[in-house]
């Protein structure tokens, strides 16, 4: 009916809503995301491509020479072992600790924000500063030794962070990392806990579930998406660990990011440093892929 009417009339009866959008608006979305794209391109994608390129170019043409040199280095095996050991110890401990803390904080009625604020203070401290703070505690003339000496436990300064005491050095680094970075897991988990309606836990309680069973059967499964985010974030950052280790152990405890730093600045060999960087990225991507698969929440199981 409408199509048979004269064009002028047809235009006239088209309502405001039906009229096609003016063509000039089509570039607006692209203009709006352009700054982000430019920013990411300049500061992330170009350096990434350059680093990958750098790691494969040694002397003439494309080669694996940098990777060979990296793998043949004395510290390479140690750095791999230490980085994985640190990640495997620190990340699970942080998640468990954060779960306990998140459960406690979410049970608080009063002063909840205050407690959360205090617990997240370490997040505001740079990792190098955190490492130096722990160095002042753990070094030979540090606070720990002073306290132990005053208590009569030790006769004089004890070296905790030296090459001869790798386990106390490792333990010190774990402690510092726990102090510094557990709060980020805590924040993610608290946000996740708040998303779970309290009726689920109440229903479970009515039907006879003990607090531990409620945590295991209700809270933990429903917290899985948040746990996944926290684990990915923390694991990726743990593979990049550097400043705290550098402050406490120097090269006594080689890690991957530390080796990249050494090759870049002391050895002035940018190719091998780039190879380390690419290796860290590959490990991080692999870990992320593992988490995405292992902790996947099927869409039909979402609340």
């Amino acid at each position: 009916m409408i199509a048979k009417r004269p064009g002028g009339l047809r235009r006239a009866i088209l309502s405001e809503r039906e009229r096609p959008m003016p063509a000039r608006t089509s570039w607006i979305p692209y203009a709006l995301i352009a700054p982000s794209v430019a920013f990411l391109g300049a500061l992330f994608i170009i350096p990434l491509v350059q680093t990958v390129w750098l790691s494969f170019s040694a002397g003439e043409g494309v080669s694996l020479a940098n990777y060979q040199r990296m793998a043949n280095d004395l510290n390479f095996g140690l750095a791999i072992r230490n980085t994985f050991l640190l990640t495997l110890v620190v990340v699970p401990l942080q998640v468990i600790l954060a779960l306990v803390m998140a459960t406690m904080v979410s049970k608080l009625d009063k002063g909840r924000d205050m407690v959360l604020w205090v617990l997240t203070i370490p997040l505001g401290v740079s990792d190098l500063a955190a490492g130096l703070a722990w160095l002042s505690i753990l070094q030979n003339t540090g606070y720990l030794n002073s306290a132990l000496y005053a208590l009569g436990v030790i006769p004089g300064p004890v070296g905790w962070l030296s090459q001869e005491t790798p386990w106390t050095l490792f333990f010190g680094i774990v402690l510092a990392e726990m102090w510094r970075a557990t709060a980020i897991v805590l924040v993610i988990l608290i946000a996740g806990l708040q998303l779970i309606p309290k009726e689920f836990s109440e229903a479970a309680e009515i039907f006879g579930a003990s607090p531990w069973t409620r945590f295991r059967k209700i809270t933990l499964p429903l917290l899985k998406p948040s746990l996944q985010s926290a684990l990915i974030l923390r694991t990726v950052l743990a593979f990049e660990v550097f400043a705290v280790v550098y402050a406490l152990g120097g090269r006594n405890f080689p890690v991957l990011a530390g080796e990249a730093y050494t090759w870049q600045n002391e050895n002035q060999n940018y190719g091998v440093a780039a190879a380390y960087a690419v290796l860290i990225m590959a490990i991080s991507l692999a870990a992320t892929a593992v988490y995405l698969r292992a902790l996947r929440t099927r869409p039909e199981q979402l609340p």
């Binding site: 309680e205 006879g208 199981q301």
Partner: peptide, 30 residues
């Protein structure tokens, strides 16, 4: 007494059916 010691059952306004369990496991929960 805590709810679980009272020996009762409850139906909630917004159902509170556990999303991560099948219907069978939901009904079987108690």
């Amino acid at each position: 007494l805590t709810p679980r010691k009272r020996g009762l059952a409850m139906v909630f306004q917004n159902y509170a059916v556990f999303p991560h369990m099948t219907v069978f496991e939901n009904v079987a929960f108690g």
